[in-house]
Nucleic acid binder design. Structure first.
Length: 898
DNA sequence: ACGTGGCATGGGG
DNA sequence: CCCCCATGCCACG
């Protein structure tokens, strides 16, 4: 986002109060922009993450702490507690701050007066957020918004009439989500021609400029109304437009979140109008036809009546009409998380498994007709219109949404998706999801690697879940969301489902069509990895004994109750010989010693150290030296330790570890999830924030960059080494166990075999770990595979390649470091072995064997993930889960070569 | 000759 | 038998 310019603009408009504690919101865009300090005037930390959206459309840059508070909905209660504007939810009585931009979307103004907190609002089908303002303040003024309008939002708006916020209940209802699919707007946005598209920029600019003025002059609402009345809609800010779009036809185009936005006000109008007619002419899609007659009115009426209820649209279609295979599997929660904005509701629209063609170089993604007609703006002409879509990383893509006449029908396609697909490193078989950010109406695109996808849902049929929690890693946006949200529960859920779904899965999605697509094993591997990783972080609820289930060769621990996403810990033995576990504080990153059987929440801080009151504060030093820590830390530690050696000290280590953990968590969640928080990832690695020094981010593009020396201790090399160790271990075991088979298997065997064979790494862990480890191993392999696959196998991931770990390892070395790598690997392997021995002795007895394993695995994963990410860069980013990253450990080495 | 765009074909549901 | 949609193929630039 053009932050700078916007910021400037907004600044002007907003004027001056940068620092009100109370009004955090609008205040200091200027300061924000200019300084490095946290946007929150009460905070002196440096900004590092994105917070709420400013009126300028930019985001408030917050420090981690403030960002977290914001993400968790605690910002106002933390900083605005003494500010005016606190009101009680009419429904639940919960206190909600209504006096600043930060909380804009945390409540809804009720028709009858008063406010309802967002959660109650949703329950009661009320709008999710304040219709009137949010847009203005919360949405970026530009194209995004304009484009963003999704049909839904649009319709909603329309329904509400002048008063935007009154909406069709269904809209908010999560369940309604799918159903809500609106019919499309009667109008089309197509008109955008290439030329028009680019006008968008100017438009934006204009908007920005205008925005302040309008805003200042009157209440947003009035302005909006005026605008509407005057026919200025085009000029209106996106938000405004959104709000009033319902009123105007114009809106339609924008609403779709389409790119149309670019059109200037006048343009837009023209377009819209023109489009309207034009649209209709063409063979109308079902919806179009339906709505065709009543344009504007139709819209309104739709909103209230049909849209909500009658309309077959989305809802109807949603699931009933759309083939199950296109049913979105992510849950609202997921979506929400993806959105990054707690107040935003992401409505899953549909998802599609990429076909070879889709993932090919042609850059055309064939859209399921019904989905296209239901969720995308109606287009009457083959040229269609540009559609703006935001990916999970917050990156915006503009695709040409168009169709080809086909027989008597149409074939809808999204053109220009190649960059996006490549960026996400998607391949045939991976799933692309489309959803819409409810308040904003923005189209969001996520993805799920085949493996993960399979887990959650590939099959519609399968997914009983429907709404369920499939989620895996939808890439969907996920910037911050995941990080914020305590995913544990969620994740656990996913995992569980995944397990169950896995069985079914295989056959699913691709189905007949997918024959070609079946990527297979790779994906499978990935999934497994994912699972593994996830498993690593999952802790069984206390006192729950798992039953082991073997699915497709994989062992799963099944717990009646959803597992808990626990904080990875390291099991060890204290001086006295007691088995204990070490855990790292979320806040200070210090390591604390805890009883062996303690199950910690995913976010654990020193304050939670009820076992050692003396060390229940972050201010207390950790009773563990960096060296000890180094020794203590398993594989993942390697990285850390090396880092230490490299130069930095404990702090670095700690950070690194923390990062790993975080990554691991994130990974599990899914791609977008984690890093997204920052919303704007690096170009290189969207998941990572700017300034991120992780391997991924510091890595040169694959195939580029200087080679590393054997003695190189950079993260990448460390990762690679670690990776190698793991691989080595695996091999070792395999060989010992299956010498003859191993060789052949490695090359031929699919991931499955690998899984079975999995080496020892997991051995350390308890019983539970067993499966995970295997998976892990597999995952690693898979990781490698992806990269290689790309290079070698092309559309169909090279199953073979992936499977062959050894080769990869070899490959790896050549790719990045060549000779040096081997040494590193050996070294790493040695260390690794040592570690394992150590750990194994400790971990075995541990009740929650999982812990040991999991922690290890998690760490490892995390570490590998990080590393991989670095190596993979793009790929890793895209991959929803860390696994991919992990897998790439070996790959990472090779990756560079890619 | 290559890359793209658009249409046609044909398997599958 | 019809509709979808993944690909193939061809024409155009």
């Amino acid at each position: 986002m053009s932050s700078s310019s916007l910021a400037a603009t907004s600044t002007t408009a907003t004027a001056t109060n940068n620092n009100n504690n109370n009004n955090t919101s609008c205040s200091s865009s200027s300061s924000t922009v200019l300084s490095r300090k946290c946007f929150n005037s009460d905070c002196t930390d440096f900004k590092s993450r994105k917070g709420w959206r400013l009126r300028s459309g930019d985001y408030a840059d917050l420090c981690d702490r403030c960002a977290s508070a914001h993400e968790e909905g605690r910002f106002c209660e933390t900083f605005h507690l003494n500010a005016s504007g606190w009101r009680g939810c009419e429904s639940c009585g919960k206190r909600v701050h209504c006096g600043c931009i930060v909380s804009l979307q945390a409540f809804t103004l009720l028709d009858a007066g008063g406010i309802a907190c967002i959660s109650c609002a949703r329950k009661s089908f009320v709008l999710t957020s304040n219709p009137a303002w949010p847009p203005l303040f919360c949405h970026p003024p530009f194209p995004e918004r304009l484009k963003d309008f999704s049909v839904k939002s649009w319709s909603q708006l329309a329904g509400s009439g002048p008063v935007p916020w009154r909406q069709a209940p269904s809209l908010f209802n999560s369940s309604a989500t799918q159903s809500e699919l609106q019919p499309r707007m009667p109008y089309e946005v197509d008109r955008l021609n290439a030329g028009e598209r680019f006008s968008a920029l100017s438009l934006e600019k204009r908007k920005l400029e205008d925005f302040p003025e309008r805003f200042i002059n009157g209440s947003p609402r009035n302005h909006l109304q005026d605008i509407v009345e005057n026919g200025n809609a085009g000029i209106i800010d996106d938000e405004q437009q959104q709000m009033f779009s319902s009123l105007r036809e114009d809106i339609s185009a924008q609403q779709f979140g389409i790119t149309t936005p670019y059109a200037s006000p006048s343009e837009s109008k023209g377009q819209i109008e023109g489009s309207v007619n034009p649209l209709q002419p063409a063979p109308l899609p079902p919806f179009a036809k339906r709505f065709h007659g009543p344009l504007h009115k139709g819209v309104d009426s739709l909103v209230d009546g049909q849209i909500r209820n009658g309309r077959p649209r989305v809802d109807a279609r949603g699931k009933s009409q759309l083939l199950p295979r296109y049913w979105p599997r992510f849950t609202d929660e997921e979506l929400q998380q993806i959105s990054g904005n707690p107040n935003s509701v992401i409505k899953p629209l549909f998802e599609k498994m990429l076909s070879a063609s889709d993932a090919g170089r042609i850059g055309r993604l064939v859209l399921p007709k019904k989905c296209a007609e239901a969720y995308f703006p109606p287009i009457s002409q083959p040229e269609g219109l540009p559609l703006r879509v935001q990916d999970s990383k917050g990156k915006e893509w503009i695709f040409q949404f168009r169709f080809w006449p086909n027989n008597n029908s149409r074939m809808y396609v999204l053109e220009g998706v190649t960059p996006c697909i490549q960026n996400m490193q998607l391949q045939a078989g991976d799933i692309v999801t489309f959803s819409r950010l409810e308040p904003e109406g923005k189209l969001v695109m996520g993805f799920r690697k085949a493996s993960s996808a399979s887990l959650s849902d590939q099959d519609n049929e399968t997914s009983q879940t429907g709404d369920g929690a499939s989620a895996n890693g939808d890439a969907e946006m996920g910037p911050s969301p995941w990080s914020k949200v305590d995913k544990s529960g969620y994740i656990a859920k996913e995992v569980l489902e995944a397990k169950s779904s896995i069985k079914k899965r295989k056959s699913s999605t691709l189905g007949s069509k997918s024959k070609r697509l079946r990527i297979e094993n790779e994906d499978m591997i990935e999934l497994k990895l994912t699972w593994e990783e996830a498993q690593g972080l999952l802790r069984p609820a206390p006192d729950h004994v798992p039953s082991i289930v073997v699915i497709e060769g994989f062992e799963f621990e099944e717990y009646e109750d959803a597992p808990v996403l626990g904080k990875p810990t390291i099991f060890a033995m204290d001086n006295v010989g007691h088995k204990i576990q070490w855990v790292q504080c979320e806040d200070c990153l210090k390591w604390r010693k805890l009883p062996l059987n303690v199950l910690l929440p995913s976010k654990w801080t020193c304050s939670g150290n009820t076992w050692d009151s003396e060390r229940s504060s972050c201010s207390v030093a950790q009773d563990l030296t960096s060296e000890q820590l180094e020794n203590l830390l398993p594989s993942r530690n390697l990285v850390t330790s090396k880092r230490l050696k490299a130069a930095k000290k404990d702090i670095d280590n700690v950070e690194a570890l923390g990062g790993l953990d975080t990554l691991a968590n994130l990974a599990i969640l899914g791609e977008g999830e984690a890093l997204l928080a920052s919303s704007q990832a690096t170009t290189k690695h969207p998941r990572h924030r700017p300034g991120c020094s992780c391997i991924v981010c510091i890595q040169p593009p694959s195939g580029k960059g200087p080679k590393h020396k054997q003695t190189c201790t950079c993260n990448v090399c460390q990762t690679v080494k670690r990776r190698f160790k793991t691989l080595m271990m695996k091999r070792e075991k395999k060989q010992s166990e299956k010498e003859a088979e191993t060789t052949r298997k490695q090359q031929e065997s699919s991931a499955e075999k690998l899984l079975d064979d999995d080496p020892s790494p997991s051995s350390n862990a308890g019983s539970a770990s067993g499966s995970p480890n295997k998976k892990k191993a597999v995952s690693e392999v898979s990781d490698d595979d992806p990269n290689r696959m790309k290079s070698s196998t092309s559309p169909f991931k090279g199953q073979i390649d992936l499977n062959i770990q050894p080769e990869r390892d070899d490959e790896l070395s050549p790719g990045s470091d060549s000779g040096g790598m081997m040494r590193m690997l050996q070294d790493a392997s040695e260390r690794y072995l040592r570690m394992q021995r150590f750990l194994s002795s400790d971990g075995d007895s541990i009740p929650a064997s999982n812990h040991s394993v999991s922690s290890w695995g998690a760490d490892e994963k995390a570490g590998s993930g990080i590393m991989l990410g670095g190596s993979h860069q793009d790929a890793s980013e895209d991959h929803p889960s860390a696994f991919s990253l992990i897998a790439s450990a070996s790959a990472s080495a090779s990756t560079p070569a890619t």
